[in-house]
């Protein structure tokens, strides 16, 4: 459905996407996970024809993003990171304008507008001005808009950023409904729980390169299913184990208190890069980042 071949994007001296290749399959949710500045948004912008690649090729629904951008645009729906709505439009008007821009026949458009408002749970709010919406409602409207013209591929750039837990769950429900409807989804996020909860396949990106690719369970298994956080010289260290028995043996050897928990995608990223995905969690961790690789290596010996 989507093929990226040796894709490169440079902004001056900064390389945002660095010789990245991927084959994304039809009807699945692909989570692009990585910290801010990893190149996820640039990747989505190239797939949506908003940014031109410096080198390499990208095909979306069989169309080359550079040679046939119109073909790509007809096949995609984009949920932009910014909640980009005209402040003078109602929810219904925003969808109608989008429908016209995509050349939808009037009768079909009116039917789809109603369907999509229902899909997003915004039927009663259809005639309200968009600026009066909460962040969660705007995000759901944004998803409804992306779906209006019935595209094969949906590109979502950080769909739940800035939302509270309740609003985020509602957005997740919509994303799952899209998978049930057979859509191909590419979802960028720096929330590991989001990638883990929604994705059939997680692609971890860092410094514009793919550093891990697989289903969430598989990636976590590779890192070690059980994580033990324990105090180190320069902060908390994390060590990974195949099972709870191995973790318990390690715990017995420690003098200080430690935490045992199930490993997650954040740990996968941590193990691969020595850094956290979420910058908020990086405080106090950066110092032990270089030690982490050593700690993880010890796991293999244990």
């Amino acid at each position: 459905m989507i093929i990226l071949e040796d894709l490169v994007k440079r902004f001056g001296e900064i390389t945002a996407v660095d010789h990245l290749s991927l084959h994304l399959e039809k009807g699945k949710i692909h989570g692009l996970l990585g910290p801010n500045g990893a190149g996820k948004t640039t990747l989505v912008r190239m797939m949506s024809t908003l940014t031109r690649p410096t080198a390499g090729k990208a095909f979306v629904a069989g169309c080359n993003v550079e040679r046939d951008p119109m073909g790509v645009k007809r096949s995609i729906g984009v949920v932009h990171q910014t909640l980009n709505f005209d402040p003078e439009l109602t929810a219904r008007e925003a969808l109608v304008v989008h429908g016209h821009l995509h050349g939808m026949p009037k009768a079909r458009m009116e039917k789809r507008v109603q369907e999509m408002l229902a899909f997003a749970g915004l039927e009663k709010e259809a005639n309200r001005m968009v600026p009066t919406f909460s962040g969660g409602m705007k995000r759901r409207l944004s998803i409804a808009r992306a779906m209006l013209h019935d595209p094969e591929v949906i590109l979502m750039d950080e769909p739940s950023v800035g939302l509270d837990a309740h609003a985020r769950r509602k957005v997740w429900d919509l994303v799952r409904k899209l998978r049930e409807a057979g859509r191909t989804l590419i979802l960028t996020t720096h929330y590991m729980e989001e990638a883990q909860a929604l994705s059939d396949r997680v692609i971890i990106v860092d410094h514009g390169k793919v550093i891990a690719d697989g289903n969430p369970e598989g990636l976590i298994s590779e890192a070690g299913r059980v994580a033990v956080d324990h105090p180190g010289h320069a902060g908390t260290l994390t060590k990974f184990f195949e099972n709870r028995e191995e973790a318990a043996q390690f715990l017995a050897s420690l003098d200080e208190p430690a935490t045992v928990r199930a490993a997650n995608l954040e740990d996968v990223f941590l193990k691969l890069t020595g850094r956290h995905v979420n910058p908020k969690e990086q405080e106090g961790v950066a110092a032990n980042a270089s030690r982490h690789g050593h700690s993880a290596a010890r796991k293999h010996h244990s």
């Binding site: 024809t49 908003l50 984009v78 709505f85 005209d86 995509h102």
Partner: peptide, 12 residues
């Protein structure tokens, strides 16, 4: 408002 991106991703 960043609504120009909406225009740019439309097939026009």
């Amino acid at each position: 408002w960043k609504t120009f991106d909406e225009i740019r991703t439309a097939p026009i």
